[in-house]
Simulated scan of single mutants.
Amino acid sequence: MSVAHTDVTAQVSGPCGDEDCGIRDVLDRLGDKWTVLVLVELAKGVRRFRELHRAIPGVSQRMLTVTTRRLCRDGLVERTAYPTIPPQVEYRLTPIGRSLAETVERLADWSREHRTAMAAARDRWDAEHPGEPG
Rank of each mutant, 00 (worst) to 15 (best):
M1C: 07
M1V: 15
T9N: 08
A10G: 13
E19I: 12
C21F: 08
G22D: 05
G22H: 06
L27R: 03
D28N: 12
D28I: 00
R29M: 15
K33R: 14
K33P: 04
V36C: 04
L37P: 02
V40Q: 15
G45Q: 09
R47S: 15
L52G: 12
H53V: 09
A55H: 01
P57A: 11
V59F: 05
Q61R: 15
Q61L: 03
R62F: 10
V66T: 15
T67S: 12
T68P: 10
L71S: 12
C72F: 05
R73Q: 09
G75L: 12
L76F: 12
L76C: 10
E78I: 05
A81H: 03
P83Q: 04
T84P: 01
P86F: 13
P86M: 04
P87S: 07
Q88Y: 14
V89D: 06
V89T: 15
S99N: 09
L100S: 01
E102I: 02
R106A: 13
R106C: 06
L107K: 08
D109W: 05
E113W: 01
H114P: 03
R115W: 00
M118Y: 05
M118H: 02
A119T: 11
D126E: 13
A127R: 14
P130Q: 03
E132I: 03
G134K: 00
G134M: 07
